[in-house]
Write a protein that binds this DNA or RNA. Structure first.
Length: 636
RNA sequence: GGACCGGUAGCUCAGUUGGAUAGAGCAUCAGCCUUCUAAGCUGAGGGUCAUUGGUUCGAAUCCAAUCCGGUUCACCA
């Protein structure tokens, strides 16, 4: 039990004995005492004033005395200042905590809950390489999975690969047109990057061709349009001439946008891509073969990146397999009256009562839409793995979609539908603004990782502390530091917030960074190496008579909070809780470290205590960083 | 226009089940390496917590309104 809940319970007990009233934890607050006051933990008395009808001081005095009388082994003193009861905790509490846990590498992790959770993350498209935003996603997904494991869950990491659809055909069309049979081998280009290049080529063509069409439209030449497109265009143009008279700028821009969209859709390249998608759906062999080949290149490229950044999955779903899922569910939903058919034969759900809109779940031709396969996959996940909780790590632009998905699952009466959780994260922006692929401002994942590792190498060489490392050891160290800095930088911010990626700040290895924490760990390991402590066990007893110094106690107080930090990170699905915690541990230890020597402690008893303190700090740093997917070095 | 998210120091961010003088890191300035790793430590300056009103012993935190920024409201995925 944590110190805070221990105090809470003792206070509850004492209150009911003293005042013959029952209280709950919510009736008062236990918090850390501010440094400028004496004591370790503080109880706010104001909230008790009303129900007890006594002054805060009177309550505080009686409560403080009672606590000390009944629990002298826990409380050693108290003072009351302006309605705050400050309690001093016995050294004994902290030293026992240390003795019991310093060698326990699993300190902070919870016992098994027997529950299963699936964390779906990464979910890439197979038409271009991963970028900075994907890194945030991958690091978040991995970390949340680790945090759930540490909280006693069985975790299944999954990934849905978006390997099908018009966007994939785009790369294929451009490759056919410009590729001349180019392969990753023949060009020496990483597969995902190669395919990405053709995606860009396609977009360039599309831009050029749609500009041609728009110019023709301006001249009144509509010969490139036919059928429904033509009549729609006609309507738009008529509307536009009308609007020109009233000069409604917003609506005019909107209409221009629609015309541009229509033109894009009617370009020859776009038509070619659409035809290819139809061929793909009909299983035309040469299209399927090309699709398999190019997807294969992308997977090889992704594999390299995933290995590099340490992402992996227990189960990979492919959209090419799942996109037909959910059709039977539509039938069931119709039978249950959750869905309804419109006159044209399309199937819908009405969510207006929930403050949302009507959403289509199946087209009139019977084909699925995006949400349909998601419903199907959500159910399949449950049936295959009997999961208790399902987490989706997806960007916040899909908040609405995920809300709809959960609502539909609930209405369909799917098991654990209320345990579908969207870990919604904000975009990563640059100091210069948003990343835009069209403007070439996208930060490539592979590039940024190599840059970070190179920076780590540069700093390390400059400091010259590991000159005796061999080449493999150096390479590993640079990876640990570079990737550590990168992961920490992206995970230290609340996931749901849009974050700014500042290249200069991200390669800073000082302050609130991964390398700072890693450095603290390496420093401790250095002490332990010199003291000949290889395992975690220390046989020398430490004296419990000597009073704990302020800085020693601060480290213990911080270490004690680790289990609570994991719990909070799990409940909030927020790795930044851990990043902040681990930084705090490192900072607190560093303050202690510069003031007091471990090896040359004043007495053997003190030395034995500080060695334990060092071991427990190192273990906690290592364990906490592991929850972020970050390794810590023995030396740096 | 509706829905959701955000606005805290020059910059990047913590802090919201309401509690004492609002915290870190970076940047700036001043100190600390014959003693366990200075990728470190100590200190200083820097704030109308977007604005206004309300709730109360007490509001960055709760409520209401307003302003600014973002996302979304596709028979695309």
């Amino acid at each position: 039990m944590s110190i805070v809940s221990s105090i809470q319970q003792r206070v509850l007990e004492s209150l009911s004995l003293l005042f013959d009233q029952t209280f709950t934890e919510k009736d008062f607050q236990v918090s850390e005492t501010k440094p400028e006051f004496e004591g370790d933990y503080t109880i706010v008395l104001f909230s008790l004033v009303k129900s007890l009808k006594q002054s805060p001081d009177a309550i505080g005095n009686r409560l403080g005395e009672k606590l000390i009388a009944d629990h002298p082994q826990l409380f050693t003193g108290f003072n009351i200042i302006k309605g705050f009861l400050n309690l001093s905790i016995a050294d004994e509490f902290w030293t026992s905590l240390l003795e019991e846990n310093y060698a326990n590498a699993d300190f902070g992790t919870a016992a098994s809950t027997g529950k299963k959770v699936m964390v779906e993350y990464s979910s890439p498209n197979t038409n271009k390489p991963l970028h900075l935003g994907h890194l945030r996603n991958n690091f978040l997904g991995w970390s949340v999975a680790e945090i759930y494991k540490a909280s006693g869950f069985e975790v299944i990491k999954s990934c849905i690969v978006n390997d099908r659809g018009i966007h994939i055909c785009k790369s294929m069309i451009a490759w056919q047109k410009y590729g001349n049979g180019a392969t990753p081998q023949s060009t020496g280009t990483k597969g995902d990057h190669l395919v990405g290049e053709y995606y860009v080529r396609f977009e360039d063509d599309l831009k050029a061709e749609s500009q041609v069409l728009i110019n023709k439209i301006k001249l009144g030449d509509l010969t490139d349009f036919a059928g429904a497109d033509l009549s729609k265009l006609d309507k738009l143009l008529v509307a536009l001439t009308k609007l020109d008279e009233v000069k409604d700028a917003d609506k005019i821009t909107k209409l221009h946008g629609e015309i541009r969209e229509l033109a894009r859709n009617c370009t020859p390249v776009m038509c070619a891509a659409k035809d290819m998608l139809l061929d793909w759906e009909q299983g035309k062999p040469e299209v399927i073969d090309l699709w398999k080949q190019m997807n294969g290149w992308v997977y090889e490229g992704f594999d390299v990146t995933y290995k590099r950044i340490g992402s992996d999955f227990d189960k990979t779903y492919y959209e090419s397999n799942t996109y037909l899922l959910g059709k039977d569910i539509v039938q069931q939903g119709l039978a249950k009256g959750v869905f309804y058919k419109k006159e044209d034969g399309s199937t819908w759900i009405d969510l207006t009562a929930e403050g949302l809109d009507e959403k289509i779940v199946q087209r009139k031709d019977g084909t699925s839409v995006y949400i349909t396969q998601d419903i199907g996959l959500a159910l399949q996940k449950y049936e295959q793995y009997k999961i208790d909780e399902s987490i989706y790590v997806i960007g916040n632009e899909q908040n609405y979609h995920m809300k709809v998905l959960q609502l539909i699952c609930q209405k369909l009466g799917m098991p654990n539908a209320d345990k579908i959780k969207h870990l919604s994260y904000g975009m990563v922006e640059l100091t210069t603004g948003k990343m835009k692929s069209r403007e070439g401002t996208v930060v490539d994942a592979d590039d940024i990782v190599e840059e970070m590792v190179a920076t780590a190498q540069h700093h390390t060489e400059e400091l010259g502390k590991v000159k005796d490392f061999n080449e493999a050891e150096l390479k590993d160290l640079y990876d640990i530091l570079g990737l550590g800095a990168m992961k920490f930088y992206l995970l230290r911010v609340d996931p749901k917030k849009t974050m700014i990626f500042n290249p200069e700040e991200s390669i800073d290895f000082h302050g609130f960074t991964g390398p700072f924490v890693q450095y603290t760990h390496a420093r401790i390991r250095s002490i332990l190496r010199k003291e000949g402590i290889t395992g975690s066990g220390i046989s020398d007893p430490f004296s419990k008579e000597e009073e704990l110094l302020k800085l020693e106690k601060n480290v213990l107080i911080t270490l004690e909070q680790y289990p609570a930090a994991i719990r909070q990170a799990c409940v909030e699905q927020d790795p930044s809780v851990i990043a902040n915690y681990v930084f705090n541990v490192a900072k607190t230890f560093n303050s202690f470290y510069t003031e007091h020597s471990v090896s040359n402690a004043e007495t053997p008893g003190k030395k034995a205590l500080r060695l334990r303190l060092a071991v427990m700090t190192a273990n906690t740093l290592k364990s906490g960083m592991k929850l972020l997917g970050i390794r810590v070095p023995e030396r740096m």
